[in-house]
Nucleic acid binder design. Structure first.
Length: 420
RNA sequence: GGAGAGGUGACCGAGAGGCCGAAGGUAACGGUUUGCUAAACCGUCGCACCUCAAAAGGGUGCCGGGGGUUCGAAUCCCCCCCUCUCCGCCA
């Protein structure tokens, strides 16, 4: 959620952001402002009535303790509480309306984000390495995997349905190696603390990071228990400090967690129907940072570099793309996507998305910090990025390291993790 | 899942319808005293919202969450959540 003060003081900015994000129709800004005004007026009325109730009730108490007559005051108070209750109910309705609108407002955008409609307007900011050359026509990972019986899509479908898969033998082991390699890199060299937490979370957590209420259809929710399968470890990691005030000396705080991620992929029918690129369950190592506001843009660069380092060590060619305004997710102020080259698919595939959320998530989740003793708590800035998506990394290794006979090499950095 | 106990400020802990945002203590911060350390003493010591150009000030809300009773609720009633102990079940 953005600073609600902007709704009163800088509606122009909000309108400008909505336009840049192609979200002009999504929120009725004038209705939002009107609701906010109504809300403020009602709060004032209610507070005044409550003040009267408190004051008179106190007088009644004093009179009664002196055994004096309080009947005139009691008569005066008749019906006051009912009036307050009615107004409170009205306020609750208006607050709910306001919250719904305010929560669906996207984050502001950083000035460095290029304006644009969709992914075609994204800007490649750097590339690393080069496309590998082959003396034969490289094949996609799913062909290689099926040929060697290490990727089994048919049985995935049998067990759970379309967009599920089974790893057998080498694929299972290699993905485990990839995850361990990434966790070790981030914890030993990049300063992250390894966390392991729930893959199933409550609604407060999903709201805190921005998945709910707006994008509810995209996630698996266990209605009976009011819990949801996490679409990314960003949710448990960022919500670690929900409703807390972090000691300023502890910042910046870096955490990482590997998890399975569950996504309904609603609305992506027909896209990437083969292979490991778009599936309902995949594994990922996530990076999350809690930082002081002044440092967050700099921290985004470092976070992105942390994710890139994985690809460098795997010697996989990639490019970093700065998302344009229209392609940046609603809760992010600035996002870099890292796209790895897939020679079999003959295209770049997103393997990490690194974002600075400023105080957008922190406000929703009430994650604050106290810079020094005696100072007022302030909202932290949160960031996250994949470091990296493990399934797509497995696919990238298979495609980039493939040999003519359909086998593939294991990258040097993963070999220690494959020894038994 | 069953039975019981309990959820009060950073922490411990009182409070059982009114003068309670909440005694007392610990911790923290500022000060006085003081060879040093320590101790003692005095003071400060929650969060959010509304109001205000801002600060000051004022008002409101918050004693796990939500409803109710009442002129008035941390205190009484109802529902829910969580923690602990015992039993059951289980990787």
């Amino acid at each position: 959620m953005i600073d609600p003060k902007l709704i009163r003081d800088n509606l122009d900015l909000i309108q400008k952001i909505l336009k840049l994000r192609n979200m002009e129709g999504v929120v009725d800004v004038s209705a939002l402002r009107a609701t906010n005004e109504k809300r403020r007026g009602l709060i004032m009325q209610i507070d005044q009535m409550r003040e009267k109730r408190n004051r008179v009730s106190k007088e009644i108490g004093i009179l009664k303790s002196k055994k004096e007559d309080a009947s005139h005051l009691l008569a005066e108070m008749e019906g006051v509480s009912d009036t307050i209750k009615t107004a409170e109910n009205e306020l609750a309705d208006i607050n709910a309306q306001f919250d719904e609108m305010a929560l669906s407002l996207p984050n502001i955008l950083d000035e460095s984000v290029p304006p644009g409609r969709d992914e075609n307007d994204n800007v490649v900011v750097r590339t690393w390495g080069a496309k590998p050359s082959f003396s034969f026509t490289p094949r996609p990972h799913y062909e290689i995997g099926v040929q060697h019986d290490i990727l089994d899509f048919e049985r995935g479908v049998k067990l759970a349905g379309t967009r599920f898969y089974v790893y057998r033998g080498l694929a299972a082991r290699l993905e485990r190696a990839i995850i361990n390699f990434m966790l070790d890199l981030h914890t030993r060299e990049h300063g992250y603390t390894e966390i392991f937490g729930p893959f199933i979370v409550n609604d407060d957590s999903m709201i805190g990071t921005g998945q709910y209420p707006k994008f509810k259809d995209e996630y698996y929710r266990i209605e009976r228990d009011g819990l949801s399968l996490i679409p990314t470890a960003e949710v448990p990691l960022t919500n670690l400090y929900r409703d807390e005030i972090i000691d300023g000396e502890k910042l910046p705080l870096y955490v990482t967690m590997q998890s399975s991620c569950f996504r309904r992929e609603a609305g992506s029918a027909g896209k990437d129907t083969r292979g490991l690129i778009r599936v309902h369950q995949f594994q990922k190592v996530e990076l999350v940072k809690f930082v002081e506001p002044e440092t967050s843009m700099e921290e985004l660069e470092k976070l992105t570099a942390n994710a890139e380092e994985v690809l460098k060590r795997l010697n996989l060619h990639y490019r970093v793309v700065l998302l344009c305004s229209g392609d940046t997710s609603a809760s992010s102020a600035k996002t870099y996507d890292i796209e790895v080259w897939m020679p079999g698919l003959e295209r770049y595939v997103e393997i990490s998305s690194c974002s600075n959320f400023l105080d957008y998530q922190a406000r929703r989740a009430r994650i604050r910090y106290r810079k020094a003793k005696g100072e007022r708590p302030a909202l932290v800035h949160t960031l996250n990025g994949s470091g990296l998506a493990a399934g797509r990394t497995l696919a990238a290794v298979m495609e980039n390291y493939q040999r003519e006979d359909g086998t593939f090499n294991i990258p040097d950095v993963l070999r220690p993790y494959m020894e038994r």
